[in-house]
Structures are given as structure tokens and as C-alpha cells.
């Protein structure tokens, strides 16, 4: 687990952090994917450093979710290479399971397991994947639930929680595996407006603690405040990338300008 106290405190805007000497966590080289004739990803190449927070923006259908889902192989890319923490994603089942246990993912629809109590949702993978004793796993699960601020809900079922609480449990569930990378796939899109903030606040804390994060979102405020780098995608390609200051204040590409003019 990335210890919050040991991590270097990021500066206010998180924009001027120098990560050039950090290790490569995710390397994508010319990644392409098709659904039938439709090209969902078109030669995506980029490298995400350790502790870097990358926000992926773009209109719907631009391939953001497909790309993020390729990184723990919920989708299979057809061309190019994806290397996560020095492990290349191939058809090798061992590589896939290794990557998945080191990459946490949070979904738009929460996807909590409705038949398990909150605490069992969080401790399921540590018990069965990490082979931890139940008592220890539950203790750590409680610690994660405290981290996301809802330890008192531990013995309820997901169906009894609000959307924001469910999404926080989902974050705790991903964190319980002590991942090196966290992927967030439009995690606030299915939430009522008043619950968006509680989830974003946890993500900010997580970013400040030094977690490597890749975030697909429509929350521009979050992108401005937390991102080290913003990647703008359209039609399966990376159109433009840069710091939030560059991206929001003087974007170079016309398509980026159009996108910004539509949403701001």
C-alpha cells in the first residue's frame, strides 16, 4: 500500500510535479482495437509514470472507457503492446491475473456484489487471491472503509446504501488489494449531484497520497485541480495531451478547442 505519510506532499495544483525520473507504470505502444469494422482505439501510445495522475477526457464514444478497460484486460487489444508495471499483457493467464491483482478498478455502475455484506465485498479478494486469514483481511477491510469514511456501514448489504456510499465501498474494495495503480471509469456519472463531491474528495485524497491514477471523467473541476496530465481523445486517438494549464488555457488543436467550447 502506498503510505499516505511517506508520500511526498504534492503542491497545491499538482501541475508542476516533476515526474520525469519516476518509474514507468503503464506503457502503451501503438495500441489498437476494433469492434468489427469500427476502430475503437487507433494507435494509442503513451507512458504513465509512477504517482502520476492522468485524466482522460473526450466526447462519448471516443474510446476512453475501452482504453482504460484494456489496461486490466477486461477488453483485449488486438495490436500494439500494453506493459503494466513491467508485466506485458498477453494471452498468458498468469500475467493477466498478476496485473489484475495490482491494478484496482472502480466502475460507473459500482458493481458491488449484492449478496455479500459490505465488509465481505471488501475482504473477498484479499482472502481468496492474497490468501489472507479472515480476521486479518476483515481488519484491513475495516481500515479501508474508514479511509473512505463509512466504517459504520460495514455490516449492511450494498442494497441498503446510497449511491455515493456504494461507490465509496467500491473504492475501498479496490484499495483492499493494495494496488499500485487505480483506474476510475466515469465513477461519478451514475451518482446524484449531491453525492458526486464525497466520491471526488476521496479520489483527491488518494491522488495526494501518491497513488498512480488513471481517471476517465467528465468532472472538469477535478481534472483542473488534481491532474498531472490531461489526455484528450477523439475517435480512438489521442488528440492532445498536456498539463491542465496548457489544456484549459491554450490548447493547440482545433478539436480540443471545439470540445472545450461545448462543455465550458
Amino acid at each position: 500500500m502506498t503510505d499516505a505519510a511517506a508520500a511526498e506532499p504534492a503542491d497545491d495544483q499538482g501541475q508542476t510535479r516533476d515526474l520525469s525520473n519516476a518509474r514507468d507504470m503503464i506503457v502503451c505502444e501503438e495500441v489498437s482495437k476494433w469492434y468489427g469494422d469500427f476502430r475503437a482505439l487507433d494507435k494509442i501510445s503513451t507512458t504513465i509514470k509512477e504517482q502520476e495522475v492522468v485524466v482522460v477526457l473526450g466526447p462519448s464514444g471516443s474510446g476512453k472507457s475501452t482504453w482504460i478497460r484494456c489496461i486490466n484486460r477486461l477488453e483485449i487489444h488486438q495490436e500494439g503492446r500494453i506493459v503494466v508495471d513491467d508485466v506485458e499483457l498477453t494471452n498468458d493467464l498468469r500475467n493477466i491475473e498478476q496485473v489484475r491483482s495490482e491494478v484496482g478498478m472502480v466502475f460507473q455502475q459500482f458493481n458491488l456484489f449484492p449478496h455479500l455484506k459490505v465488509i465481505d465485498n471488501v475482504s473477498l479478494a484479499p482472502i481468496w487471491v492474497r490468501k489472507k486469514p479472515r480476521a486479518e483481511a476483515e481488519e484491513q477491510a475495516m481500515a479501508q472503509l474508514e479511509r473512505v469514511g463509512i466504517p459504520e456501514q460495514a455490516h449492511k448489504y450494498p442494497g441498503q446504501l446510497s449511491g455515493g456510499q456504494q461507490q465509496r465501498v467500491a473504492i475501498a474494495r479496490a484499495l483492499a488489494m493494495e494496488p499500485k495503480i487505480m483506474l476510475f471509469d466515469e465513477v461519478t456519472s451514475a451518482l446524484d449531484p449531491e453525492m458526486v463531491k464525497e466520491v471526488l474528495d476521496i479520489m483527491k485524497t488518494l491522488a495526494l497520497s501518491g497513488m498512480t491514477m488513471m481517471v476517465v471523467t467528465h468532472e472538469m473541476g477535478f481534472a483542473k485541480e488534481v491532474a498531472d496530465r490531461i489526455i484528450f481523445m477523439e475517435e480512438g486517438q489521442i488528440v492532445e495531451q498536456g498539463t491542465p494549464t496548457h489544456f484549459f488555457e491554450n490548447p493547440t488543436e482545433d478539436r480540443t478547442k471545439l470540445f472545450l467550447s461545448q462543455i465550458l
Partner: peptide, 22 residues
Amino acid sequence: PKGQSEAAMAVGLGRGQVLRHV
């Protein structure tokens, strides 16, 4: 829902474990 097995796979459970526990 497909999201259930995806979420289970995403936390690192193997195929058999996904089937058995989720």
C-alpha cells in the same frame, strides 16, 4: 449482470473463483 464478473475479475479473482463466489 456482466459488471459483476468484470468487477470480480478486476480485483484479481480467477475464473473458478468468480463463478463460485460471485
